[in-house]
Design a binder for these strands. Structure first.
Lengths: 291, 291
DNA sequence: GTTCCGCATGAATCGATAG
DNA sequence: ACTATCGATTCATGCGGAA
């Protein structure tokens, strides 16, 4: 058979996830990754849910997510409890317990260490520089592609990660052995190492309007770790669409849902840019291989 | 009044914390910092508690801890849930919820990022390189001395911390009051910054036998942050006595409890070494000022 | 089939030493 | 003072075998 282009589909659905998801087929999603609106007492702009209602608000959605996820799939939930009345609120840990009652397995908790976190100073509290990345699964036997997220070891990682475009990454990795001679030959044996469950990423999100945006590296890491090409990624709180853009870039199908029409528009615009860019690339570099 | 030596007391009590603590005076402790035996299904060597019994086992102790803590005091709990049957067990988050019912405030959760974590490779899991440091308080108005844990900014921190042996540290700190003050105050403006709630420490403890040891930097950080000189520090699961040794070094009174006689002996030996050393120092550098 | 325990497997960073 | 080695350190999991 000849090589042909397999289209990567990227769907944006405007609506309430708890309703929209009901029309989804069961066992159809490979990875759910999302950063839901955090509980917030004050700003009710973007679905700001009061902390005490947060669990009840979220559970109907996680119930549908459990249904639509493939048995081998994974659900990554980026969340962090707010300080309410001088205390860390408990809605996140209550949510974990309730989700387990629904049938979710709480497989792991990754830490996202935000290297440049919000500035500020308080008399009885330091700056909060980490968030939870809760991993939930349907079954113990889920897909995990660990090799896809190996990182350069030691101090190289820092200097290297600074100035790389997307393409430099792969090319760099394959060419490391040749160019620099003896210095590098020491490293060649074991340049790449497995990461741990602590992620060090700076929080640089392009879309400052969205209240719950994460940097592209975050969905990228989990998309590489838990999906392969042509798998389906779902973000039930799409926001500005970072998850979809990254999915598209790495040739994963994706679906984004958001209740706010403006975000859907914004995500569409972003995607059009990306797709135009990708189309150019295809023309330039030839057609994409089918799987 | 003349300068005179105020003795720093360091008490070691062999026994079960849930019983021993009952004889303690209420509202008498400034800081509780401890790393209790983690739940473990398998090894019952050091009070290995099965996960499903962990909360019930711990709650009577936290009840007493709440009583003996000063209203302005803090309780730091170093803990991490094990993987049980492919899932992160929930005993830690259940413990948080139950402790709040006792009256504790869950003020903050620090992350201890263990830079050199346990080896291993598993098909569906990366190495676990972080632990929780849960901060509990009795009242919202607790003592916090943020300036005491400011860190040199940028790369200096690394290079400085590298070259510090234990002796250098003590010498540093004992001299801070006198000669070096001015120099430091110059730097404070631009080189010292407040830390965040993520601690980066390597796990190297001198006492290899103890199954529940943390590195000295950990209690050091919290002792500086939450106590001043001559305050009282309590470790209800003393183990090899790291908390007491550090308390002593920084001129805090301390009390350690452990159920295992061998650990009490070990801690006493360690302390004797330290005290002999300190005595030498005093002779050399003159008497210690009273408060 | 269950559940239990023992044991082999397992990776990267830090610190000190030497060049 | 910087670099490159070596050696030491680490509160784990999953698997298999036994009860």
């Amino acid at each position: 058979m000849e090589n042909n282009i397999i289209e990567i589909t990227t769907d944006i659905i405007q609506g309430d996830s708890s309703e929209v998801l009901k029309s989804f087929e069961s066992d159809s999603i490979d990875l759910i990754i999302t950063s839901p609106p955090y509980a917030d007492q004050r700003s009710f702009t973007y679905g700001g849910i009061p902390p005490e209602e947060y669990v009840d608000w979220f559970l109907p959605i996680t119930k549908e997510l459990l249904r639509v996820l493939k048995p081998t799939g994974t659900f990554i939930l980026n969340i962090k409890e707010k300080v309410v009345n001088g205390e860390r609120n408990t809605y996140v840990i209550e949510l974990i317990l309730e989700m387990r009652k629904q049938g979710w397995l709480w497989t792991e908790e990754f830490i996202w260490h935000k290297k440049n976190c919000y500035p500020g100073k308080w008399p009885n509290r330091f700056r909060d520089s980490w968030e939870r990345l809760l991993q939930f699964n349907k079954c113990k036997q889920f897909h995990m592609y660990q090799d896809a997220v190996m990182v350069p070891m030691g101090n190289w990682s820092k200097t290297r990660l600074k100035n790389l475009s997307d393409k430099d990454k792969t090319r760099d990795d394959s060419k490391v052995g040749s160019g620099f001679g003896k210095n590098i030959s020491n490293w060649v044996d074991r340049t790449m190492v497995y990461p741990t469950n602590v992620l060090h990423l700076a929080t640089e999100c392009n879309n400052k309007n969205h209240s719950a945006a994460f940097p592209e590296e975050l969905p990228e890491w989990f998309i590489k770790l838990f999906t392969k090409e042509f798998d389906v990624v779902l973000d039930p709180f799409m926001g500005s669409g970072t998850t979809l853009i990254v999915s598209n870039r790495f040739r994963r199908n994706s679906i984004g849902i958001d209740i706010i029409p403006e975000y859907c528009e914004m995500a569409k615009k972003q995607l059009n840019k990306v797709e135009a860019y990708l189309y150019e690339k295809r023309e330039k570099y030839g057609k994409v291989k089918s799987k």
